[in-house]
Simulated assay, not measured.
Amino acid sequence: MKILVAEDDFASRNFLQFFLRKYGEVDVAVNGSEALEVFKEALNEKAPYQYVFMDIMMPEKNGLDAAREIRGIEREFNVAPAKEAVIIMATALSDVKTVFEAFNKSEATDYITKPLDVETLTAKLKEIGLIKDE
């Protein structure tokens, strides 16, 4: 299982990396541009990411644009819809407009609001099927 974390905030990035590593190999990117490079490289190497956790507000390229471009890269590589990466947007913004934009314009799978904590993240991971109820 490969997971990509794209987060510019050091504390959030480290929290996600530490928490998610028990579920798979975790790579990190510090902005949307870097996330796109890493994501495309993984597809080129035939070792795609199954999950992408991406902050919405990042420098160089925001998460909404990066998520939309990830979907374009998957189409370019003829990734079947059932094999597309699950993209979870992380945001400190919880207003309806941002959530609507994340789903409709970026083609994200789901979102989670910050601040991130173990309980909220565990619930989301169960919801998306990354971890099973014990």
Rank of each mutant, 00 (worst) to 15 (best):
N104M: 12
F15L: 13
V86L: 09
F19N: 03
L93Q: 10
Y111K: 08
M1L: 08
F39M: 08
A35P: 09
K83P: 04
A35V: 14
V79I: 15
A47C: 11
F100R: 15
R21W: 02
V26L: 05
D55T: 09
L16H: 09
V30W: 01
N78L: 03
S33K: 12
L4Y: 03
V96A: 15
V96C: 04
N62H: 13
M89A: 15
E127N: 12
K83W: 02
F100C: 03
L93I: 04
K22Q: 15
A85G: 05
V38W: 02
R71E: 05
N78T: 08
K83T: 07
I88A: 08
F100L: 03
I131E: 03
F15A: 06
I70W: 00
L121S: 04
Q17L: 10
D133P: 00
E7T: 04
P115F: 08
K97R: 12
M89R: 06
L20H: 06
G32L: 07
S106E: 09
D110L: 05
I70C: 01
K97V: 13
R68T: 00
L4H: 03
R71I: 06
D110W: 07
E45I: 05
L93F: 12
V118H: 04
F15V: 09
K132S: 09
A108N: 01
T109E: 03
T113C: 06
M58T: 13
A92W: 04
E127P: 02
L130V: 06
E134P: 13
I70E: 00
E41S: 01
N104E: 14
K46T: 13
K2N: 15
K97Y: 09
L93A: 12
F100W: 06
F18S: 07
T120W: 00
N44R: 10
F53C: 03
N44F: 11
D133F: 04
E84C: 14
E84Q: 15
Y23Q: 11
T91P: 00
E76A: 13
F15K: 00
L20D: 08
T122L: 14
K124V: 02
N14Q: 13
Y23M: 10
V118N: 02
V86E: 13
E45P: 01
Y49F: 14
Y51R: 02
F103I: 09
R75F: 00
F103K: 11
A42F: 04
A67K: 06
F39E: 04
V79D: 09
